[in-house]
Nucleic acid binder design. Sequence first.
DNA 1: AAATTAGGTTACGCGAC
DNA 2: GTCGCCAAACCTAATTT
Length: 328
Amino acid sequence: MSHQMKHNARRRQRPGTTEPETPADATEDFACTECETNDTSQSNNGEVVCNECGLVIEEENIDQGPDWRAFGPAERDEKSRVGSPLTETMHDKGLTTNIDWKNKDAYGNSLSGRKRRQMNRLRTQQERASTKDPQERNLRHAFGEIDRMASALGVPQSVREISCMIYRRALEADLIRGRSIEGVASSSLYAGCRQGNIPRSLDDIETVSRVEQLEISRAYRYIMRELGLEMKPVSPKEHVPRFCSSLDVSNDVERKATEVIEVTAEAGLASGKSPTGFAAAAIYTAAMLCGEDTTQRAISEVSKTSEVTIRIRYPEQMEIFTDPNHEN
DNA sequence: AAATTAGGTTACGCGAC
DNA sequence: GTCGCCAAACCTAATTT
């Protein structure tokens, strides 16, 4: 799986090695495919973004280095945890030993008849244990769904892990009873996206989900409440990169839009408004301020808001932004 | 393409019936 | 169990500029 991704430039210096410290730029091996520059940087949500054109180059970026530091060989042995990485996206966290199908022992010798029958029994047992236990089957089904939907929406792996963790907790707290697996899986993904600061609207989730929005939001509220998870309201700013990269606008506009949101939200314009609509309007405002032409229609399409909403929102933002007794 | 207008829909939980 | 509550935000659709 994607855990196998190699990523040499990001591997940290290990103690005990004799190689000299190489103070390499953390993301130097990501060159932008559009404008041929190496001027890229990594945002805190796991995306690598080109500083020139705003193109998102790498979305599923996992740090392969250890999450610990050691000061000497003894300590390294102590802290090292060997084995394949744990993942939340598999029903058994990818942890169990699988019995393979070959009737050979570890040295490649054939097994005796008795041993062979024993191995067959073990295989059947394992298969039953992992597929017949209702809880495990539930998780398999749900995680399959989460992965499918996340792929369709282009959601990075880190968020999938969060989503699967939320689902697992819901299952363990016995919150699924009376709700569909699909519905809870969808709402876990929605919640995971928000937690990971890569929000997707309920509309977005619905387009890839097999259940309707009402059920998703119901399950979402219920599970958040029961698990005691606090969710910060989504800032319109978090939608800007996604909308802009779907549009054909310069990153000047993107930056400006973020600025517009900051300033106008400060003035209290954003409260009570839908974050997607507000972000959409800010992009339109920014495009006008930058002298680039974009149509309200195009923005409304990628943001899944109506043109009318953009129309109502943007003059309010524009006013604050061009107000003489307000700086900028 | 953008603006205007009109009219309908949504979502929530709660107490009352 | 369902009725009503009630406003602001948002939507669609038709029309005009």
